[in-house]
Design a protein around this nucleic acid. Structure first.
Lengths: 173, 173
DNA sequence: AATGAAAAACTACACTA
DNA sequence: TAGTGTAGTTTTTCATT
């Protein structure tokens, strides 16, 4: 049976990885990253493809994990007044037995919006969102002060969320 | 012409404030924050309302800005291998004439995913996403080294994006 | 790539607390 | 008056050719 040049079977359901994103895929991603409710018809018009083609490409990218999720961005202060806090955490050491439990802890704490493990002196950076300082004081006690893995931590209160977003730069080629 | 007690015109498109979010609104937000493509029928079932009621509440929350946007989350490394970098920037002073241009600069730089202005010695925290260190070196020169508003800056390379997300805690009452 | 069926989103209207 | 459910219309999504 004849095969395609790339070796995949002709009818192959490539539920896994998608080899390479072409111009069209990138253009679609740029749109959905801004507004995931844009109709396939409008996307099609904008990228010069048929709605069906757009639809296939979107499902392919969803199946292959290129599109991780579609989410609503909720304005924090519309729901409840809140304070954003950045925390720099330094651990006693950078062994896996220390790092892994901390990752699990931060993952399990809903007030921790984001957590990054960074180079250098065994450190995490956290972006937290709490209703008030009382709540943060309480959280910081359990998460940091009374945590034997933690050496030191530094708390920075955010005065202005100048730019928030997870949108990435999608290159032209 | 008769006006409503709150001064808005009778047919006024109440694009502004929604009084208070009730249990239903919160339940809807919790769902959409995880998956904005959940159908109104399913949401309705889950929160015990009619699909039409769900639809009205969603539009109201979109119009009033409680739902800021619906976006697709794109896996950065699926599009292009990339490095996440956290930068702590200290300014020469904390006057508006210094801060405002910096905010504008960071807003205009697509590689800057997030920017927070924090308390203390006139500082910003940035989360940046770049294709490689060469690109970061170039960006850091224009953004920081050669920028007269900037006093010092500290670069931290992210080894693990442990948790990334903008989801907020929506309280029960 | 185009067509048509299925599903979802939206609108109008009458009703209720 | 604000908000609901029912039912009907339009739009979008999706599978088939």
């Amino acid at each position: 049976m004849r095969q395609r040049p790339d070796g995949r079977p002709q009818n192959g359901r490539s539920t896994r990885t998608k080899r390479h994103l072409d111009q069209f895929d990138r253009a679609i991603l740029r749109i959905l990253q801004n507004d995931s409710r844009t109709s396939q018809r409008m996307i099609a018009e904008s990228v010069h493809l048929s709605p069906a083609a757009v639809q296939r490409r979107i499902s392919a990218m969803e199946n292959s994990g290129i599109i991780e999720a579609n989410v609503a961005i909720v304005a924090p202060d519309a729901v409840q007044s809140s304070i954003t806090i950045i925390v720099e955490v330094h651990l006693q050491n950078d062994r896996a037995a220390t790092i892994e439990p901390m990752k699990a802890l931060f993952n399990a704490t809903p007030e921790v919006q984001q957590c990054y493990y960074v180079t250098g002196n065994g450190g995490f950076f956290l972006v937290m969102l709490v209703p008030d300082m009382k709540r943060y004081e309480h959280l910081s006690r359990t998460l940091f002060s009374e945590n034997s893995f933690v050496d030191t931590f530094r708390t920075l209160v955010v005065l202005d969320r100048v730019k928030t977003g997870l949108g990435i730069v999608i290159p032209d080629f």
